[in-house]
Simulated assay, not measured.
Amino acid sequence: MAIIINLDVMMAKRKISLGELSQRVGITNANLSILKNNKAKAIRFNTLEAICKELDCQPGDIIEYKEDE
């Protein structure tokens, strides 16, 4: 199973930079970058909630499931 994080897509749609989102959400650039680049092993619900609030989106807009081929 593969969980894909589409944070970069939502950021592009909302025209917001990594640094700006980092400041608004209260997460370091490094941790947000790890999430954006699909390197994260987990995400806290309060972090996901803060990101969704700032990007005005739903969790499903950021997180996607794809079956392995």
Rank of each mutant, 00 (worst) to 15 (best):
residue 31 N to I: 07
residue 39 K to H: 13
residue 1 M to G: 15
residue 64 E to R: 13
residue 5 I to P: 00
residue 4 I to R: 15
residue 16 I to F: 04
residue 40 A to G: 09
residue 39 K to E: 08
residue 60 G to T: 06
residue 65 Y to L: 11
residue 55 L to T: 02
residue 59 P to L: 08
residue 46 N to H: 12
residue 5 I to W: 00
residue 69 E to K: 11
residue 1 M to A: 15
residue 45 F to R: 07
residue 55 L to D: 02
residue 62 I to W: 00
residue 9 V to E: 02
residue 35 L to D: 01
residue 54 E to Y: 05
residue 53 K to Y: 14
residue 13 K to L: 04
residue 6 N to T: 05
residue 58 Q to K: 15
residue 42 A to P: 05
residue 2 A to T: 13
residue 44 R to V: 08
residue 22 S to L: 10
residue 67 E to W: 14
residue 60 G to Y: 05
residue 37 N to C: 02
residue 9 V to G: 02
residue 56 D to T: 09
residue 17 S to L: 09
residue 65 Y to D: 05
residue 37 N to G: 01
residue 16 I to Q: 02
residue 37 N to Y: 00
residue 48 L to S: 03
residue 48 L to P: 00
residue 48 L to V: 04
residue 4 I to K: 15
residue 59 P to Y: 06
residue 41 K to A: 11
residue 14 R to A: 10
residue 5 I to R: 00
residue 54 E to I: 04
residue 16 I to C: 05
residue 23 Q to Y: 11
residue 44 R to F: 13
residue 26 G to I: 08
residue 20 E to Q: 13
residue 17 S to V: 07
residue 48 L to C: 05
residue 66 K to T: 12
residue 3 I to R: 12
residue 43 I to P: 01
residue 55 L to Q: 03
residue 10 M to V: 06
residue 61 D to Q: 05
residue 6 N to H: 12
residue 53 K to A: 15
residue 45 F to C: 10
residue 30 A to G: 09
residue 47 T to R: 08
residue 38 N to P: 06
residue 4 I to N: 13
residue 42 A to G: 13
residue 36 K to A: 11
residue 36 K to L: 07
residue 12 A to L: 09
residue 62 I to F: 00
residue 3 I to D: 10
residue 6 N to W: 01
residue 21 L to T: 01
residue 67 E to A: 14
residue 62 I to R: 00
residue 17 S to R: 10
residue 5 I to S: 02
residue 48 L to F: 05
residue 67 E to M: 15
residue 66 K to C: 09
residue 51 I to S: 00
residue 6 N to S: 14
